[in-house]
Amino acid sequence: MTAPSFAEQSAWMQAMRPETARIEFVFNNGDARHPLLELLAHLDSVRTVGVGPDNWHYRRGRPTAVKRSYAYDRDIVRAIESLGCFFPEAASDKQWTELGDVDVMFLDKRGKTLGVTVTHEGMLIAPADEDRLTRQS
């Protein structure tokens, strides 16, 4: 399976913009000196160490992952794009864009997931995929 192109990744984000109230980042390898944080330094975020299990990404909790939650701001989308979006182009031999091993979740004002990335698998997931992707315990 080929990861979506930069244009497809950008279009996916842009399609969610009207409903997005929060954007959450899960830094799988920590957030120390991450370039995204420099780009978003002017925005407030809530930082949490450790991510619990959920239906989208993690069967088990990830106690060392760092989550940052931001109120929606267009600068977040611009920052993601400036780092190369979520996944490298198919022709690239790089494993990651400058965003790195960071999963991103877009949430509406009620906290409902609008879309999520699974970076290590090169996947963009929308709510229509939920039934197919939800794992039964």
Rank of each mutant, 00 (worst) to 15 (best):
T2D: 06
A3H: 02
Q9Y: 09
S10T: 14
W12N: 08
W12K: 01
W12Y: 04
M16S: 09
M16F: 06
P18I: 07
P18F: 05
T20I: 15
A21G: 07
A21C: 08
A21T: 11
R22I: 02
I23H: 03
E24V: 12
F27H: 03
N28S: 11
N29P: 00
N29H: 09
G30M: 03
A32I: 12
A32K: 12
R33N: 13
R33H: 05
L36I: 05
L37H: 04
L37R: 05
E38S: 08
E38H: 08
L39S: 14
L39K: 14
R47P: 03
T48I: 15
V49F: 04
G50D: 07
G50M: 00
G52H: 11
D54Y: 05
N55W: 04
W56T: 11
W56C: 05
W56E: 04
Y58M: 03
Y58H: 06
R60Q: 14
P63V: 13
T64Q: 14
A65T: 09
A65Q: 08
K67C: 07
R68C: 07
Y72T: 06
I80V: 10
I80F: 09
L83H: 04
L83D: 04
G84H: 02
C85F: 04
F86D: 10
F87E: 00
P88Q: 06
E89N: 10
E89R: 02
S92C: 09
S92Y: 09
K94C: 07
Q95N: 03
Q95K: 10
Q95M: 09
E98N: 14
G100Q: 00
V102L: 06
D103E: 10
D103A: 00
M105Y: 09
L107E: 06
L107G: 01
L107Y: 03
L107Q: 02
L107A: 12
D108N: 15
K109C: 11
R110F: 14
R110P: 01
T113F: 06
T113S: 03
L114V: 05
G115K: 01
T117P: 04
T117A: 02
V118A: 06
V118Y: 07
E121W: 13
M123D: 07
L124S: 08
L124K: 02
L124P: 10
L124W: 04
E130R: 07
L133E: 08
R135Y: 13
R135K: 12
R135L: 15
